[in-house]
Amino acid sequence: MWFDAVGDLVRVALVGTAAYAALVAVLRLSGKRTLAKLNAFDLVVTVALGSTLATILLSADVAWTEGVLALVLLVALQLVVAQATTRVPALRRLVTAAPTLLLHEGRVLEDVLRRQRVSTDELRQAVRASGSGSLADVGAVVLESDGSLSVVPLAALGDSSALADLPGRDAVGRPDGRP
């Protein structure tokens, strides 16, 4: 059967359009952080938003206002957690994965690659994508909390202060003895 009643199709079209407009408005009001690269927490919120929108669209048992309230609640909770994690480092560590150093001054940290389930091929791909043809020309490769790989050329490494928050960085050290 293609559909039960024309009224159901009209409801999906009208409520779907209104729910979509409400979701876009809520996301625009919530700011760029809601749509940033996804860490695990952001992914959960995004999936929940999609699931809520689908429920609003397809379930006649959910009123539009209830659905929009659910969307606003999810985004508001995401904003509260984002604000709290910027103020409380322990909460940030609980909600967001820490970035991890995978390569330091041309040296691949094999044990870290294994623990983080990143292949040497993926590491090399990120280095090539950064425009470098040699691992020896790379100061650092970092697996970021959102799963992306950041590549810092050796010439741009400077005092390594951008790597200061990375767990295990002190163990790597520098050839000149500086931390």
Score class of each variant (00 low, 15 high):
Leu43Glu: 07
Ala54His: 00
Glu66Arg: 14
Leu58Pro: 05
Leu58Tyr: 10
Lys37Asn: 13
Gly31Ala: 04
Ser59Arg: 12
Val44Ser: 13
Glu66Lys: 15
Val47Leu: 15
Lys32Glu: 10
Thr65Ile: 14
Leu57Ser: 12
Phe41Gln: 05
Arg28Ile: 05
Arg28Thr: 04
Ala36Pro: 06
Thr55Trp: 07
Ala60Glu: 15
Leu58Lys: 10
Thr65Gln: 13
Ala40Val: 14
Thr52Phe: 02
Ala40Glu: 14
Arg28Glu: 00
Thr46His: 04
Asp61Pro: 07
Ala36Leu: 07
Leu49Ile: 03
Thr65Val: 15
Ser51Asn: 11
Ile56Asp: 11
Gly31Pro: 05
Gly31Cys: 04
Leu53Val: 07
Leu29Pro: 00
Asn39Lys: 07
Leu38Ser: 13
Ser30Met: 01
Arg28Phe: 00
Thr34Phe: 12
Val45Asp: 03
Ala40Asn: 10
Thr52Lys: 05
Ala48His: 03
Ala60Cys: 09
Ser30Val: 05
Asn39Ser: 09
Ser59Phe: 08
Thr65Phe: 15
Gly50Ser: 01
Ala40Met: 15
Val45Gly: 01
Leu43Trp: 10
Trp64Thr: 13
Gly50Leu: 04
Thr55Gly: 10
Leu49Gly: 00
Leu35Cys: 00
Leu53Arg: 06
Thr46Met: 10
Val47Lys: 03
Lys37Thr: 14
Ala36Ile: 03
Thr65Arg: 14
Val45Lys: 02
Val45His: 00
Asp42Cys: 08
Phe41His: 08
Thr34Trp: 06
Gly50Ala: 00
Leu35His: 01
Lys32Leu: 09
Gly31Arg: 02
Ser59Ile: 05
Leu49Gln: 03
Ser51His: 02
Thr46Glu: 02
Leu38Pro: 10
Leu35Phe: 02
Asp42Tyr: 12
Thr65Cys: 09
Thr65Met: 13
Phe41Met: 10
Trp64Ser: 15
Val47Phe: 12
Thr34Asp: 12
Arg28Tyr: 00
Arg33Val: 09
Ser30Glu: 03
Gly50Thr: 08
Leu29Gly: 05
Ser51Ile: 01
Arg33Gly: 01
Trp64Glu: 12
Thr34Tyr: 08
Val47Ser: 03
